[in-house]
Write a protein that binds this DNA or RNA. Structure first.
Lengths: 148, 148
DNA sequence: CTACATGCAAATTGTTTGCAGTGTT
DNA sequence: AACACTGCAAACAATTTGCATGTAG
C-alpha cells in the first residue's frame, strides 16, 4: 500500500503537479477504502475526520486530477452521486458490479465480457475501449430474509 | 404508431390517469423520436416547438408517470442527464448501447447477456432482475476518418 | 518567489416540490 | 363540485467556478 502511494507521488511529480497535504490525505483515504466506492462527499468527510482540513471543492478538484491521470475512475451507479474507484494493477478496470435493489449493497465480480466484446466489435464494426456493466437484482441475504 | 398511441391512452385511462394535452404532446414527441434517447430538457423544447405550451416540471412529472407505468425507461449514460427510451414490445428493454467517444453517436445492439446472467446468478447467489450495459469506443465512421 | 493550489462562497445544472389556480369528469 | 393536473417559482442536491490568500517547489 505504501509502495502504491509512493508510486503515485512520483507520478504526480513527473507530471508537474504539487504534492499537497490535501492531495495526500485524499489519496490515503482512497487507498484505505479501496473496496468502498466512495462518493466525493464521503471522501470529504473521511479526510476531515483524519484531522486534515480540506474543502469540498478541493476534493472534487483532486478527484478530477486523479481521473485525468488514470489513477482512479469515476463511476456512475445511477444513484445521483459519482463514485470513485481505484485503478490498481491487479484490478485493471474491467470488472462488473452487482447492485442489490433492496439493501443497496454492491458486489464486484470478475469480467465476463471479453469474448462478447470481440463478437460485438466484429458484428458492429465498433472498436470497444471500455464497457460499463451493472447487474441489478437482489443479493443473497435479502433473498434469504424476504423468502422472495 | 397511432395504434401504439391509442393503446397507451387506454392504459392511462384504465389506471385512472387523465389524458391531458401536455401528456399527449409529450407522448407524441417520444413516439416520433423513438430512437433518439431524449433528455427531459430536449423533450420539453420539442413539445414547446409544436406550439403546445408546457412547463418543464410537467415534463418531468409526465416522464415519471410513464416510467411508473413501464411505458418508458429512464436511462443513464453518465453524461449528467437522464434520458428516456420507449419500451415498445419489439424492444422489450434488454438491449445494449454502443457509445462513440469521438462523435457521441449511440447505437443499439441486441441483448447478449442472457446466458451470462444465468452464470452470474449461479456463481454469486444473486437474483438478477435487470442489467445496464454500455460499450464505449469508436464507431465505424470515426475510425474511418481518423484511421486510428 | 511565483505559479499552482486551496478555501470559501457564489454560481450552475439537473431535478423536485409547494402551492395557488385550472380544467375534466 | 371534487380532484387530478398544471405552471411557476422556490427549493434542492451535486458539482463547478471566481477570486483572494496560502504554500510547495
Amino acid at each position: 500500500m505504501q509502495e502504491r502511494m509512493d508510486q503515485i507521488k512520483k507520478q504526480l511529480h513527473t507530471e508537474n503537479f504539487k504534492l499537497t497535504p490535501q492531495r495526500e490525505a485524499t489519496l490515503r483515504v482512497l487507498l484505505e477504502n479501496e473496496e468502498a466506492h466512495l462518493s466525493a462527499e464521503e471522501i470529504f468527510m473521511l479526510v476531515k475526520q483524519k484531522a486534515s482540513d480540506i474543502g469540498l471543492a478541493t476534493v472534487y478538484r483532486t478527484l478530477d486530477l486523479l481521473c485525468d491521470l488514470k489513477i482512479i475512475e469515476k463511476l456512475n451507479f445511477g444513484d445521483g452521486v459519482a463514485r470513485y474507484e481505484f485503478r490498481s494493477e491487479d484490478h485493471p478496470h474491467h470488472h462488473h458490479h452487482l447492485i442489490c435493489l433492496k439493501c443497496g449493497s454492491l458486489f464486484e465480480i470478475e469480467d465476463l465480457l471479453d469474448d462478447l466484446e470481440e463478437r460485438v466489435e466484429r458484428d458492429h464494426k465498433f472498436k470497444i475501449v471500455d464497457h460499463r456493466v451493472s447487474f441489478l437484482g437482489y443479493c443473497f441475504s435479502c433473498l434469504a430474509k424476504e423468502g422472495n
